[in-house]
Nucleic acid binder design. Structure first.
Length: 605
RNA sequence: CGGGGCGUGGCGCAGUUUGGUAGCGCGUUUGACUGGGGGUCAAAAGGUCGCAGGUUCAAAUCCUGUCGCCCCGACCA
């Protein structure tokens, strides 16, 4: 008799604590500092192997896989398809886009037995571009969006905070290819689809997050958004307008209109002071006994657009920070901090530069932040070891000054060129002020444009038989970082509190007395019916004291605990407790338990 | 890349100043008692003190070098 095999699928997983590896720790290793790092180690999710290198133990790996699976489903639903790229990438590929230099030390490099140089891929723009170049032959195959979920490598100078900044980490990267930016099949369409997919991913993961406008960064490109998990312990600062909903990375955040003028009391005396070895604002301010906010900070940039070099002196208030991206946007050309030797040769006294250089050094332009206009200032004396006080723009600068009506004068302009700060006017609602919040970047989407396609000459004939360079987008999610971010976002003194969708198990069945067959029988039956409802179950069948099991259950953060003990069994019940509730929970008839679990899990645990 | 700190059983730490045969708590193993929020008692296993060299009769301890790890800053998808 032939036996027919049918495909079956288990809905939920049932594991026994005694059969898996969950080495919980009462104390975290001294070197772990961040909540996610400490708790994930204590909960037996990860172990440190080296700086920025970790083992993923079963518990941690289950969470990682759940996040990855959600990412996968949403990417597939948004029209992207998965593939796998190599971790080992020949160095020539990165040399093609000069990123072997741009990444510099961040790139893990190794030499194989034949002396070839190979990099451990930190990201794969070059690899996919090369792949697509060799495999796409017609514009009819566009648009195309492919992605991979895999380990990436970056030799971070200072890895830290556990999974938040490792040297080896799991990342999803998607790359899209288009004939155009606008229109059907264009970059914008896919970018928007990815944006929605990302919102879905992080919502489904159960995370509290904010989408912010971001700088494109060294990867190149135009528009860019970051997805930030809201957490006090986050490394990134984001600015939010509570009224309009505008939010942006602090590096990108615009500042609303600020009124300004160059009028000031010109009766104050202009005095030169000896300030030996004090190129910094702080020291000078202290020496002259005034606030840094009464000083001007003048940073010398040079244009970096390949054309004839111009000097750009960015002037902000002493307590503010110049934003290079804003300077670039203001003058409409890429800029870089001036080469110190060249700037000195041109006559800049680096460390003691004042706005007056615009009058004395050729090809020099001034960009002034509104907050650095009106008033009487202290600034450099354009002379080594000297500063001046009593600097007044409209008296001490022999050059046409702009006004609010005409913010660009001959070689001087006023523009928003500093980093936003809490309390600054919102750029979207004049009546509102910006608020600063902390976040952890878990996703980033970019419109890359043609940078990589050009570097690899990735072009194709369009319907008009014209050769066209392809336009690209790239979309990353830090999968392992997302896991850590969710712990940063959601934990308490007792341990982790996993969001339901990414929790390693949904229910932990705590068996009070594993030697009591009634206990184990009920536990097994319960686990079975829970798993049939699609619930992942961990049975704590260890011969441990109840206190140990309760503490561990809290530590590893499973959303629901069902306790099986004599007290509840006497009433044909189990004890039901949500992780986020305090106390002992309440009795639920055994037969009703799966229903109850399901309804609580469906409502976010 | 600048500044600081730390390497001693699985984890947390003492011992280093002033050299003298390595200790505590937790955890682990065995037994007994116990049995609903990290229990008690008893017994036991487990460390060439990161590594290498030097000084010394003698080095966890002093000297030199080296490797590793962490924190702050800078930098950074």
């Amino acid at each position: 008799m032939t036996q027919k095999t049918i495909s079956t699928r288990r809905l939920g997983t049932v594991h026994r604590w005694s059969n898996t590896l969950i080495p919980t720790l009462r104390d975290a290793p001294a070197e772990a500092v961040n909540p996610s790092h400490r708790l994930m180690i204590r909960a037996g999710c990860i172990r440190q192997v080296g700086a920025g290198i970790y083992d993923y133990l079963p518990l941690g790996y289950r969470v990682l896989n759940k996040v990855a699976q959600i990412v996968r489903e949403e990417m597939d639903a948004a029209g992207a398809t998965e593939l796998l790229l190599p971790a080992l990438v020949p160095i020539e590929l990165y040399a093609g886009t000069k990123r072997d230099k741009e990444y510099g030390e961040l790139l893990f490099k190794l030499t194989d037995r034949h002396g070839r140089e190979v990099a451990l891929g930190p990201t794969h723009e070059e690899t996919v571009t090369e792949l697509v170049k060799g495999s796409i032959t017609s514009y009819k195959q566009l648009p195309l969006n492919v992605y991979q979920i895999q380990t990436k490598f970056r030799d971070e100078f200072r890895p830290r905070a556990g999974l938040l900044r490792g040297r080896e980490f799991v990342m999803k990267d998607a790359y899209s290819f288009h004939l155009s930016v606008e229109g059907a099949g264009g970059l914008n369409e896919t970018y928007d689809a990815m944006y929605s997919a990302y919102v879905n991913v992080f919502t489904r993961c159960g995370l509290d997050f904010t989408v912010v406008e971001a700088e494109a960064g060294p990867i190149g490109g135009s528009a860019s958004h970051e997805f930030m998990v809201n957490a006090e312990t986050g490394e990134d600062t984001i600015m939010v307008c509570p009224k309009s909903g505008y939010s942006a990375n602090v590096e990108k955040c615009e500042i609303g209109p600020r009124s300004w003028s160059f009028e000031a009391d010109s009766s104050v005396e202009y005095i030169k002071h000896h300030t030996p070895n004090m190129p910094g604002i702080e020291a000078v301010a202290e020496h002259l006994n005034l606030e840094p906010s009464r000083m001007l900070k003048s940073i010398v940039f040079q244009t970096a657009d390949g054309g004839p070099r111009r000097w750009i002196v960015a002037v902000v208030r002493g307590d503010h920070d110049v934003n290079e991206g804003k300077v670039r946007d203001a003058i409409g050309s890429p800029v870089a901090i001036a080469d110190e030797a060249e700037a000195k040769a041109a006559g800049f006294v680096i460390g003691y530069v004042s706005p007056r250089v615009v009058c004395t050094i050729a090809d020099t332009h001034l960009v002034i932040d509104p907050d650095a206009t009106t008033g009487v200032w202290a600034t450099g004396a354009d002379e080594r070891d000297h500063h001046v006080t009593g600097f007044v723009w409209n008296r001490d600068l022999d050059m046409p000054l702009p006004s609010e009506e005409a913010p660009v004068a001959e070689r001087i302009m006023v523009a928003d060129i500093r980093n936003a700060m809490e309390g600054d006017p919102s750029p979207r609602d004049a009546s509102s002020r910006l608020v600063a919040r902390r976040g952890i970047e878990v996703g980033h989407i970019f419109k890359l444009g043609t940078k990589y396609a050009e570097a690899f000459d990735l072009s194709i004939l369009d319907p008009n038989q014209k050769k066209q360079i392809l336009t690209m987008g790239c979309y990353g999610i830090g999968v392992s970082r997302t896991v850590a971010a969710s712990v940063e976002m959601s934990h308490d003194d007792a341990g982790i509190i996993w969001p339901v969708p990414i929790s390693p198990y949904h229910v932990v069945v705590t068996v009070m007395d594993p030697k009591n067959t009634e206990h184990t029988t009920v536990a097994d039956a319960l686990a079975l019916s829970l798993s049939e409802a699609g619930i992942d179950v961990l049975i704590d069948d260890r011969k441990e004291r109840p206190g140990v099991k309760f503490k561990d259950a809290d530590l590893i953060g499973i959303p629901i605990r069902l306790t099986i003990g004599n007290k509840a069994l006497a009433e044909e019940s189990v004890e039901f407790k949500r992780r986020r509730d305090a106390g002992k929970g309440d009795l639920v008839p055994i037969a009703d338990a799966p229903e109850r679990c399901l309804s609580v899990l469906n409502n976010g645990g």
